[in-house]
Design a protein around this nucleic acid. Sequence first.
DNA 1: GTCTAAGCGAGACGGTACGTCTGGTCTTTAC
DNA 2: GTAAAGACCAGACGTACCGTCTCGCTTAGAC
Lengths: 191, 191, 191, 191
Amino acid sequence: MEQTAGRGRPRSESARIAVLHAVDDLLVEVGYANLSLKGIADRAGVGRQTLYRWWSTKAEILLEASSHDARHELAVPETGGAEEQLVAYLDALGVFLTRSHAGTAYRALLGEAQHDPAVAELLARNDLLGDSARLVIARVTEDDLPEPALGRAVATLVGPAFFWALTGHDPSVLDRAAAARACLEEARAGR
Amino acid sequence: MEQTAGRGRPRSESARIAVLHAVDDLLVEVGYANLSLKGIADRAGVGRQTLYRWWSTKAEILLEASSHDARHELAVPETGGAEEQLVAYLDALGVFLTRSHAGTAYRALLGEAQHDPAVAELLARNDLLGDSARLVIARVTEDDLPEPALGRAVATLVGPAFFWALTGHDPSVLDRAAAARACLEEARAGR
Amino acid sequence: MEQTAGRGRPRSESARIAVLHAVDDLLVEVGYANLSLKGIADRAGVGRQTLYRWWSTKAEILLEASSHDARHELAVPETGGAEEQLVAYLDALGVFLTRSHAGTAYRALLGEAQHDPAVAELLARNDLLGDSARLVIARVTEDDLPEPALGRAVATLVGPAFFWALTGHDPSVLDRAAAARACLEEARAGR
Amino acid sequence: MEQTAGRGRPRSESARIAVLHAVDDLLVEVGYANLSLKGIADRAGVGRQTLYRWWSTKAEILLEASSHDARHELAVPETGGAEEQLVAYLDALGVFLTRSHAGTAYRALLGEAQHDPAVAELLARNDLLGDSARLVIARVTEDDLPEPALGRAVATLVGPAFFWALTGHDPSVLDRAAAARACLEEARAGR
DNA sequence: GTCTAAGCGAGACGGTACGTCTGGTCTTTAC
DNA sequence: GTAAAGACCAGACGTACCGTCTCGCTTAGAC
């Protein structure tokens, strides 16, 4: 799709995979702060120029490396009532934010977004968390909620767990059912 | 209390002030990502060693530089009913997170905390946001809520605005009254 | 011989030249004591890493920068008798030690060798002065003098001028003919 | 003579001794290159200001610390003939330059003099080596040799050993008797 | 018996070089 | 024309030492 014909040597898929794996591994091993493009290239056995050719920043690499897993981990089965599904979503969100590799990557990206407007915009265009919440809310309310109200419902649902996790606590102590109910209330009001 | 006897030359208060001002200014001018200890030292007209002598990281300097203002901006007058005070607090929080210098510093620190466990711990020991929320909640509930419940109330109150602001949106579109009510509900349940 | 194939970017000859010129200039301008690798890099318009990649110490750079000139300045035409050639050599040595740029570099290196064993060894492997003296002595004696005796002849020939110059005096007041004769005497005895 | 009356607290002799001992020890332990005034002060248990109050440079301290020993080690008994005394002097000189602490200090100072004109002048005013040689030559020639000639005799006597030692060799392989004879010859010619 | 002066150890001050690291670019050969 | 390799310039990192500057304390002579 990006690469139409290609006159010369085609892009190496193996290099791409190696980079994504390397960044995944290194994030766990050394943390985002100590993650360098040089380190990624060395670990992946890839030239430095190759990184710069296909990605602009380490945020972009990290996003590509983690977004697939993130999306998967934040999806929730369509079984049970509305509140039940929202609670299930909050369960998944809690695990994602505190115990998942993809979640660690997401938190790192969101942290970087507070430092760097470019990363903030990148995340705005790939709103892993917000999109997943929107999806489940839209499904359980069976209602085409307009955006301002949908956003309010999302914030009400995920806000508490998000705050609790990002300030270093374990969101499993929170009252998921209450958050789900408040979200539904918000959705009803926004209709 | 910190300086008991002091045999050698005492710490220079003017250097300390110069550093805090420099970090404040630079955060606005170049952003956290481009904030370097060298830059702070140069701007403050201070030796590099002096920075390292009194602070370990740029996060620590930034925290000291902004915590006073932050605490002040997140304090709320004791006038009006419970819900009214909580809404006033959420007003202040929205301004803090999106338009205040101290809030910019706080967001940068919280971002760094996602990259660096040391910063995370530093913020945990100086929980500007959580403490201010605890204060106002404890006041309006006139109740000695035990910690797990108090934490839940805090997360319910500030979570939505926190999430909305950190993902790049303006929390003034949120329903502050609903959040205040949900918080009070949570507090009542935790009694 | 040193560079067989090389997959990556080859060493920049222009950077090498710029460094050698910079160190030459700076030695004259600021003196060895105030010669810093940072200063050399800045003056040469070269990255600091490039210096460390190709040389270990400023002594090594200085040696490379000056050895060519030094060798040239200490060479003596093959005209005249034995004593005549030795006197001509001592003339050149006197100029070298007191008035030549390369000689200033040599004296600085020899000074550093008294402080730092690594530099001492470096100079031992590149014995600019001793080698030039050995060359001329071997030539005029037309004799394959064995090393211990050759060394004695060298010391007898250059010792007085060397001492006189390094203790801050002008060796042109010394009796070059006497030193040449003593050297020949020493060589004859060592046969 | 230096200290006439003094209204305030008199100079601490114990501090002076401690500094001289410290510099002596550290020269052996870490070498001149790694000798710092801070290190000397710490080792001596002395304030940094005290060093700067009484000495200007580390060269000055080192000279004071070693000159007494140096003078003693380069003195030679007045027994035996002229050549015999000169040879004895060269023996002492060889030991001094290669195996004595004071000699190590002298070589370090002479090295520094090649980098720093101030040290060169300091050594010129305290010509440990030249003075000792002048003394023994004047004694054995029983002649008030005028300076230019005396200097030539000194250079002839000590030059070879000096060169040999400072270029990293052991001067005990040199022909001391030949040097002594050449020196006497030089002295006779300069009369 | 103060008072004043100077030296003392301690240690912070503004600077600056150190050697290392990373960023982003450029220039080779190999495929 | 992409890939890996690796050198290029630039500049921040945290450390060490420089020479200077306060501190509180000590030790003397002067009053």
